[in-house]
Design a protein around this nucleic acid. Structure first.
Lengths: 161, 161
DNA sequence: ATAAGATATCTCGACGTCGAGAAAAGATTC
DNA sequence: GAATCTTTTCTCGACGTCGAGATATCTTAT
C-alpha cells in the first residue's frame, strides 16, 4: 500500500476537504439539537471552556463574521442557552455567558461530542496524530499568511446578470 | 518534537477545521471570478478532468446536493462556461460539458490553483504528506461510515464504502 | 472641549446550500 | 399494456453566512 510517490498537493487538499466534510457532518448529527447548528455548538463550547466573552472574541475563535455572530447569539439567546450582559466599563461591549440551561446542555453535549471524536480518530497512532497535527497547523498557517493571491483577468467579456 | 503527549481528538479536529477554512479561503481568493465561488470552480475542475458528466454524478464528486447542483450549473451556464446537453438514450439525464470559454477559463485557473496549492504545502516533507494523506483518508472514512449517532435510527446496518 | 479615528455590535440585502417534494422518464412486474 | 417502483432533475421555501453600512461608544490628538 505504501506508494513511494510524493502526494501531490491537489490530492492532499482533496482528502483534507473530504475529511472535513465527513467529520463535520458526523459531528453535526451527534451534536445538533432542534434549531441549533454546528456553529452554535462551537460558540457554546468556547463559552464553556473560556467563560464569558465578547461577541467579537467568540467570532474570532469560531471563525464567524460579525453579522453571523449576531444571529448566532440571537439564536442561542432565543433558546435560553446564553445571555447578553452589558459591561459598565465599556458600553459598546456585550459579554455573552452561558445560562444554567446552556451550561447543562453544552456539558452533556460536549461529553458526547468528545467520545464521538475519539471514536472517529481511534484508528490513528500517536505518531500519526502528531504528524497530522503539526502538518495541518503548518498548512493552515501558510494558507492564512499567503491569503492574498493575484487574480487575473478572466471572465471579462462574460458578465451577465 | 517538543511534546510527546498524545494529541487529543478535539485538538486534532480543531486544527483540521482551521486548516480547511484557511486553505478554502486562500483557494477561493485565487480561483474565484466574479459571480463564481469555490463550488463552481470544483464543478469545472471535475469536468476538465473527467469530461462531460451528468448533474448527479458531478454532485457526488463535489459534495453538493441536487438542489445546489441545479443552481451551480445554472450559474455556470449563465456565465457561458458550461452547456447542458440532452441524452437521447436516457431523456431524464442532462449531460454537462465545458464550452470553449469554460475550457479556457478552467485550464488557466486550474494551473494557477495547482501552483497555489503547492506553495501552501511546500513546507511538508514527503513523509508528512504521506502520513497526512493516509490519516485524513482514515478519519474521513471512519466519519462517513459512523455518521449515524444515537439520535438517528439505524435501519441499515453497516454499509461498506 | 472638540474633532477625528478606532472599535463593537447590529441591520439589511444578497448569496449558497439544503430538504422536501414535484415532474418526467426509465425499469420492473404482473 | 398497465401499474408500480426508481432515478434524474428541477422548484420552492427556509436557513446560515457574509459584506457593507449604520450606530453607539471609546480613544487619541489638537
Amino acid at each position: 500500500m505504501t506508494d513511494l510517490e510524493k502526494i501531490p498537493a491537489p490530492r492532499l487538499w482533496l482528502v483534507l476537504a473530504r475529511a472535513f466534510h465527513s467529520v463535520a457532518a458526523y459531528i453535526e448529527g451527534s451534536v445538533t439539537a432542534q434549531g441549533l447548528g454546528l456553529s452554535d455548538f462551537m460558540v457554546l463550547e468556547v463559552l464553556l471552556h473560556k467563560g464569558p466573552l465578547t461577541i467579537s472574541v467568540i467570532g474570532e475563535k469560531v471563525l464567524l463574521a460579525s453579522a453571523s455572530m449576531t444571529s448566532a447569539i440571537d439564536r442561542l439567546e432565543r433558546h435560553g442557552l446564553v445571555r447578553r450582559r452589558s459591561c459598565s466599563s465599556d458600553r459598546r461591549i456585550r459579554l455573552v455567558e452561558l445560562t444554567e440551561d446552556g451550561k447543562i446542555f453544552i456539558e452533556e453535549t460536549y461529553a458526547r461530542h468528545e467520545k464521538d471524536l475519539e471514536r472517529v480518530t481511534e484508528g490513528l497512532s500517536d505518531v500519526e496524530r502528531r504528524v497530522m497535527y503539526e502538518g495541518l497547523k503548518k498548512v493552515g498557517l501558510a494558507a492564512k499568511v499567503a491569503v492574498p493571491t493575484e487574480r487575473c483577468k478572466s471572465l471579462d467579456g462574460v458578465q451577465n446578470g
